[in-house]
Design a protein around this nucleic acid. Structure first.
Ligand code: MN
Ligand code: MN
Length: 549
DNA sequence: CGGTGTCCAG
DNA sequence: TTCACACCGTCAC
DNA sequence: GACGGTGTGTCTCTGGACACCGGA
């Protein structure tokens, strides 16, 4: 595998800064623009040191523990960064973070009174209880530095990636060939953000998410109420993605209120949005409070405005149970179609180390079949291969950086609308396409390892793809792909554990269920789909063979 | 001293 | 740190 | 059977260094 050039990390950092400067400079504040200008004016050593430190946990670093061969003059680099405001030595550092700079033996030397048998965490706690922060600082007298400007880097990163979960390691993995990306064309005007207000709101929503997480960790009702009052004000955001993110946070908090039996507080938050999870919780709460009419009317509204299969399922099932219990007749409810999935009962020896799915797969192999543990990798994977060029079609604005696993509109209705003709053609041609197998396989070979939202290369053997293409009939693929396309976001999960190929012909999807496990909702939906489309699928119900001693 | 987890480089 | 999945305990019917 | 809570792998990968911990 090819080595990266010395200082590769600085190249990546600068690439990102320049890219953002080129595409988004009109969105940047004076401070953010100056940040880049000042950084570029630093010496190469200083730039390298800064990027190195910012890539590490920190937040503080002992100067005597900083070792980088490629940085010639460490002290000069530190001075430069300090002068330009990229680094400082904090006067009032966090004591715990300071203690973390010492190993446990060093801690015990510095604070000899401690009982050596304690765990590290207990030692730290007891030092903090015993000494004031300034005493700890003076006592250790370490020369420490802290890189500054993380917030600015965050802005640049968000503008570049369009999210905050990707980071500089993307560059490395790509350049090492470990996780390369499709070479789609980005039109030069493509931008994820157009508006500073949206950018700021997005940054705020990431912070809100983080503080929500902390608040939930605390497990304290007062904190929760305080958080609600201070941070969850009704806000109107134009950006739908942002709105959804905000509502998700509200719903998480509301769910926590339910755990405290504060249904009224929960409802107040749930009421403000119409996300599926919110509607579902509202229906449950009203039912629990014996407000049957309210609960049923939520279900009815949910049913008639259902955006996904799962909303339809839930509203129907929940209302059905309610009506049965309270003797209501609901005109809007469709006839019940009882589930009738074929079940195969088998008995095998337990082996904790392997897991029930692999054991069942082995069982099928012992019957002379071939069997793979694929879950959601096979069908979405072949879909991703067959539709590859459509997924990565350059449509204006959907590709705005080189590290995307799919177009920006992949999970919005826009995706289908803007490509409807091509998608329809591809689906139609599937039935007669002499080339279907070849085009999937040739994409498998030519796109190998390239990141695609639907293709999980690690779980998609070439051999498996070949066999699946041979054994699964065209019209089955047609229906499977149509079903995926009907809800790309939700229908890429819930597929059965195994795909089984009997010795000579045919195939079978098999969902393995150990003792005490049952079909999940998403799995049920797939099984309904299988049964209406005559796609062979069963549930393998496993029980453990009694071991004789 | 071996097992485990975390950090970090590439 | 999120998501998808399995597993476990409880409760009511 | 319904429901809620929890645990696990895995998130894009792999290996090395190191610290910590608990038991011999
Ligand atoms: Mn499974
Ligand atoms: Mn299963």
């Amino acid at each position: 595998m090819e080595d990266l050039p010395t200082g590769y990390y600085l190249d990546n950092f600068k690439y990102l800064l320049d890219f953002v400067d080129e595409h988004y400079s009109n969105l940047l504040t004076k401070e953010e623009l100056n940040y880049r200008r000042d950084f570029l004016s630093c010496s190469r050593d200083a730039q390298r040191l800064y990027v190195r430190l910012c890539g590490r946990r920190g937040p503080y670093f002992r100067v005597d523990k900083i070792f980088y061969d490629e940085i010639a003059d460490l002290d000069a680099a530190i001075d430069t960064l300090r002068d330009k405001g990229f680094l400082w030595s904090p006067k009032d550092p966090d004591a715990l973070a300071l203690l973390s700079l010492l190993t446990k033996p060093d801690l015990l030397i510095a604070f000899p009174v401690m009982n050596k048998k304690l765990l590290r965490g207990d030692i730290e706690a007891s030092i903090l209880a015993q000494y004031s922060v300034s005493e700890v600082v003076n006592h250790l007298s370490l020369h420490i530095v802290e890189p500054l400007g993380h917030e600015v880097i965050t802005v640049y990163r968000l503008l570049f990636f369009g999210n905050l979960h990707q980071d500089f390691s993307e560059f490395v993995l790509r350049d090492l060939g470990l996780s390369p990306f499709e070479n789609y064309t980005m039109d030069s005007s493509a931008r994820y953000f157009d508006d500073r207000a949206i950018l700021d709101a997005t940054l705020a929503s990431y912070e809100l998410e983080a503080s929500c997480y902390e608040v939930l960790e605390e497990k304290n009702l007062e904190t929760l109420i305080e958080f609600t009052d201070n941070c969850l004000h009704l806000q109107s955001v134009e950006e739908p993605r942002l709105q959804a993110r905000f509502e998700k946070i509200c719903n998480r908090v509301a769910r926590e209120y339910e755990r405290y039996k504060k249904d009224d507080l929960a409802l107040k938050l749930y009421n403000r949005n119409d996300q599926a999870s919110s509607l579902e919780r509202q229906a449950r709460i009203y039912a629990k409070q014996n407000k049957i009419d309210e609960s049923v009317s939520i279900c009815e509204a949910m049913y008639s405005a259902a955006r996904t299969e799962s909303e339809k399922e839930f509203s129907q099932n929940f209302a059905r149970r309610l009506s049965k219990k309270h003797g209501l007749t609901l005109t809007w409810m469709p006839e019940i179609v009882p589930d009738d999935f074929s079940v195969l009962e088998i008995e095998i020896n337990n082996d904790e180390s392997l897991g029930v799915e692999l054991l069942t797969s082995t069982w099928f192999q012992k019957q002379g079949s071939q069997s793979w543990y694929v879950e959601n990798s096979l069908i979405p994977g072949i879909f991703g291969l067959y539709f590859w060029d459509i997924i990565f079609l350059s449509i204006k604005g959907v590709f705005f950086n080189p590290f995307q696993r799919g177009p920006a509109d992949l999970f919005t209705p826009e995706f289908l609308h803007l490509r409807s003709v091509l998608i329809q053609q591809r689906l139609d041609s599937l039935r007669v396409d002499e080339n279907f197998q070849n085009s999937v396989l040739s994409n498998y070979d030519s796109k190998m390892k390239l990141a695609n939202y639907f293709v999980n290369w690690n779980w998609l053997d070439r051999e498996l793809v070949i066999l699946a293409l041979e054994r699964i009939p065209r019209n089955h693929f047609h229906e499977l792909f149509k079903h995926l396309l009907s809800d790309l976001r939700h229908n890429c999960s819930g597929l059965p554990d195994l795909v089984v190929f009997p010795k000579t012909e045919g195939y079978l999807f098999s969902e393995v269920k150990g003792p005490g496990d049952k079909l999940q909702d998403s799995q049920k939906r797939w099984f309904k789909f299988f049964s209406t489309n005559n796609i062979p699928a069963n549930i393998v119900s496993v029980s453990w063979r009694k071991v004789q001693y």
